[in-house]
Design a protein around this nucleic acid. Structure first.
Lengths: 108, 108
DNA sequence: CCGTATCCCTGGCGATACTG
DNA sequence: CAGTATCGCCAGGGATACGG
């Protein structure tokens, strides 16, 4: 029987599940921006998240989108216009963001 | 054009400051263990945090210690005994851990 | 404007062996 | 037991160029 899963990465506790979504290097910073602005375009995010490259931003956005945390909406304008927004699941991350801001301001 | 001038990379908002402490790959999982057990020895942590290597655990512990989140106490027994514990600053991370557990259980 | 496609290099690990 | 030292892999991510 499968009593034993992979010994490598077995038990997905709630924290591990969260980390799988927002554990990336840039995840929190991207989400933070979106939480404060409701809608964000690619270029705006790239400017706001200081130091991120196009590739890393794309990767982060794709991952968050696949995780159901954000939505991507493309408008057939010329040039192209794309807007990203938090889903309900994404907005629910507010508690974590809030606690991190709080701890960072008090202790770090 | 009239954008708020955020300093290049070192723009340390509260979230970035938090990430600098607990943004590591294993940080949250190590802290989680210590938050539930008050005292933890090296070997216990290595068993509890499934998949972590000695090197990564050492690196994580050193970083957390340098950040003032945990303390390291070595007892001159044979063989050596070392205990790690959260500081007040470390215990203050409870809010973040709690929110991550909550979000992970509800959404992930 | 919003990406994707390459190239390439760093460093983050894991594995192993060894020490106090 | 609790690390340190060393090697080596390979994925992450930066830089650049280009396509829709």
């Amino acid at each position: 029987m499968e009593r034993e899963e992979k010994q490598a990465i077995p038990a997905q506790c709630s924290i591990e599940k969260s980390l799988d979504v927002v554990g990336g290097k840039w995840s929190f910073l991207v989400i933070r921006e979106m939480m404060f602005h409701e809608k964000k375009r690619f270029g705006e995010l790239k400017q706001a998240v200081v130091g991120i490259s196009s590739k890393s931003l794309t990767d982060t956005l794709r991952h968050l989108e696949a995780s159901g945390v954000i939505t991507r909406t493309a408008y057939p304008t010329v040039p192209m216009t794309v807007e990203y927004a938090l889903t309900e699941k994404g907005h629910a991350l507010h508690g974590i963001i809030h606690e991190m801001k709080k701890w960072g301001s008090e202790w770090a």
